[in-house]
Lab assay of single mutants.
Amino acid sequence: NKFNKELQWATWEILNLPNLNEEQVKAFIDSLKDDPSQSANLLAEAKKLNDAQA
């Protein structure tokens, strides 16, 4: 289903952001699991944090 694909993509993207630490990655992944419908928003937040920590 649509959410599953978005969830998988967002998870992969977050796991490959170079500037997030392990705790941050885990928090984002946990949030994705809690509410897959928010995957696009969570991914945007993760990318923002990644850029801020570059």
Rank of each mutant, 00 (worst) to 15 (best):
E13S: 07
Q24P: 00
L42G: 01
A27Q: 13
Q53R: 02
K33M: 12
L7P: 03
L15K: 13
W9L: 15
V25T: 13
S31P: 01
K2W: 13
W9V: 14
N50E: 01
A54E: 10
K48T: 09
D30I: 11
D35H: 09
S39Y: 15
A40G: 14
I29Q: 03
L7S: 04
I29K: 03
K33A: 09
A54W: 08
K5T: 13
S39F: 15
A10I: 14
T11A: 06
Q38F: 04
W12A: 15
A27V: 10
K47T: 10
D51Q: 13
S37W: 07
D34Q: 14
P18V: 10
E13P: 02
D35M: 07
Q24E: 04
N21P: 02
A44Y: 12
S31D: 09
K47V: 08
A40I: 08
A27L: 10
F3D: 12
W12V: 10
K33D: 05
N21S: 13
N4V: 04
A27N: 13
A27Y: 14
N21A: 12
S31F: 12
A44E: 07
K33Y: 14
Q24T: 03
N41E: 11
N21H: 13
A40Y: 09
N19T: 04
D51S: 11
A44T: 13
L42F: 09
E45P: 00
E23L: 11
L42K: 06
E23S: 12
K2H: 15
Q53W: 06
L17G: 00
W12R: 08
D51G: 06
E22G: 08
A10D: 03
A27D: 07
K47P: 00
F28L: 05
E6G: 03
D34T: 13
K5M: 06
S31Q: 11
E45Q: 13
E23F: 12
L15Y: 08
W12M: 14
Q38W: 04
V25P: 00
E13M: 07
L20N: 00
K33E: 10
P36S: 04
K2G: 15
N21T: 12
K5H: 13
D34I: 10
A46H: 01
K26M: 11
T11I: 15
S37L: 06
E13H: 06
N4E: 15
Q38S: 11
E45R: 08
N16D: 06
K47E: 05
D30F: 09
E6K: 03
I14N: 01
E13I: 08
I14F: 03
L20G: 00
E22S: 14
L49Y: 05
F28A: 02
N19K: 03
E6A: 03
A40P: 06
L42Y: 14
S37F: 08
K47S: 07
D51H: 10
E6V: 06
F28Y: 09
K5L: 05
S31Y: 07
Q53S: 06
L17M: 14
L43G: 01
S37R: 07
P36L: 06
N16G: 06
Q38D: 11
A40R: 15
D30A: 14
W9D: 09
L15F: 08
I29W: 03
D35I: 04
E6M: 04
K33G: 07
V25Q: 13
N50H: 03
L32W: 02
K2Q: 15
Q8Y: 09
W12K: 10
F28N: 00
K48D: 02
N16P: 01
A10K: 03
I14E: 01
S37K: 08
P18R: 07
P36A: 05
A44W: 10
D35Q: 12
L17D: 00
L32V: 05
N16E: 05
L7V: 14
N41F: 14
F28T: 01
Q24I: 04
K2R: 06
K26R: 11
A52G: 08
N1D: 15
P36V: 06
A44H: 14
F3H: 08
Q24R: 01
A44F: 10
A40S: 14
Q53Y: 06
I14H: 01
L7G: 06
T11H: 03
F3K: 02
A54I: 08
T11L: 13
D35R: 08
K47A: 06
S31M: 12
F28S: 01
E23G: 09
V25E: 02
E13Q: 13
E22P: 14
Q8I: 10
N19F: 12
N41Q: 14
N21Q: 09
K26I: 11
A10S: 05
Q38T: 05
Q24Y: 02
D34G: 14
N50R: 00
Q8P: 02
K26Q: 09
L32D: 00
L42W: 06
K47G: 04
D34H: 11
S39V: 15
N1E: 07
E45Y: 08
A54N: 06
K2Y: 05
F28W: 03
L15A: 05
L43N: 01
L20V: 02
K48I: 10
N41A: 13
F28Q: 00
L17R: 00
L43P: 00
K26A: 09
E22N: 13
N4H: 14
V25D: 00
L15H: 11
L7A: 11
W12L: 12
A27F: 04
K47N: 08
D35A: 09
D35L: 06
L15M: 14
T11D: 03
L17N: 01
L42A: 05
N1K: 01
D30K: 11
Q38I: 09
N4D: 15
A54V: 09
D35W: 06
S39A: 14
E22F: 12
